[in-house]
Design a protein around this nucleic acid. Structure first.
Lengths: 199, 199
DNA sequence: GGATTTTTATTGATCGGTCAATCAGAAAAA
DNA sequence: TTTTTCTGATTGACCGATCAATAAAAATCC
């Protein structure tokens, strides 16, 4: 059974199991043993592939962040106008691949972890900066720079807010409607910013 | 030292210490012993006043929610128009007494806890419903009902989002500016809703 | 091509430590 | 003397991490 090149397979299985178990319990109160079991291996082996539980969780978040980035880039390719590109970014946040119970749970845990673990805080900062930069890049083409920064912050806050509010399980009812809330914010704020500037 | 009528005093001290320790560590990974020590008593005594650690945390959140409610009502008394009353609700969320590091940390932990502990989930639902109800009550006086519900949801999401984004410590810079982000959303959305309806 | 050595993969058992919760009893009012 | 308040010590359980040992492939040698 033991073959060469198991490392990437095992690591992927552990990352996937970590996200799954966080989703199942809604917290990081999951033993490494339970995660390992779900991934089909022993506790010791899990520890041989990840230095610590923290490192395992960080790998899981990097995976989620990576998938999100892929989703954004894929949608951006199909978008031409700044408006379409903004919608693409928002849609990526609320796509079926991202806006799921266990992903949302992981995000919540991530926010808490970022208060305690410096590496998690760093990762969160990077994500935030990148999102902000992406939003501003599009917005400044259609609204004044000052408004662009402001609207970008509002958009990011609302995305996170919808995530947080989507967390209490039992009802993740309407992907489209939640995303629509953010896109509506963008539409109206953009129109308003230009109206004021045009005068 | 041991006197009659210590219960409310001790309980208040424990609730306060719980919030403080959550703020200090940014998580619920605080021992009851540490909380008790901060509150100036033994671990055993803390357990005699609260059935469990969960119960202690819930009491802390009820306290925060209670203070928030008081702050809202105090501000509502001074407000006359629906617009002022909406601003009062938002201002309460970002007042100096609410938008503090340890309160924000407690909120984050609360969201995670609500995924696991049914009683926390219940408390969170109640808070959400009340906030929504308050917002809609004011909004429906100045915009169509359908818009009111929509704007209320957006406002609530943005409040939570700003909280979550305010959590990564090191910079809780501008109370007023963050609150302004939400109030701007309200202003613009209200104007937009009426514009569309008037036509 | 078979026997060996080396490398990689894997696990059961365990260690060291932590922590929530309990209990029996001390200390101080009433 | 009774009641309330309080604590040190302890219990029982859990968990992250480690380690020694096993198993199986791959590489090397004869």
């Amino acid at each position: 059974m033991p073959k060469v090149g198991q490392k990437p397979i095992r690591r992927a299985a552990l990352v996937s199991a970590t996200i799954g178990e966080i989703g199942r319990t809604g917290s990081l109160d999951v033993t490494v043993g339970q995660i390992a079991k779900t991934a089909g291996m022993s506790t010791a082996l899990a520890h041989s592939y990840f230095e610590s539980k923290d490192a395992l969780f960080l790998a899981a978040m990097r995976h989620i962040l990576g998938e999100f980035g892929i989703s954004v880039r894929r949608r951006l390719k199909k978008a031409d106008t700044p408006e379409q590109r903004l919608a693409a970014i928002v849609d990526a946040s609320f796509g079926q691949d991202q806006f799921q119970d266990h992903i949302v749970s992981a995000w919540l845990v991530f926010y808490v972890e970022a208060q305690r673990a410096p590496e998690a805080a760093r990762l969160l900062r990077i994500y935030g900066a990148r999102l902000h930069s992406n939003l501003v890049h599009e917005l400044r083409q259609i609204v004044p720079l000052k408004s662009a920064a402001n609207i970008a912050r509002g958009t990011a806050a609302m995305i996170d807010g919808v995530y947080v509010r989507g967390a209490p399980k039992g009802g993740n009812p309407n992907y489209k409607e939640t995303g629509h809330l953010v896109k509506e914010y963008l539409d109206v704020m953009i129109a308003y910013a230009n109206e004021n500037n045009g005068k």
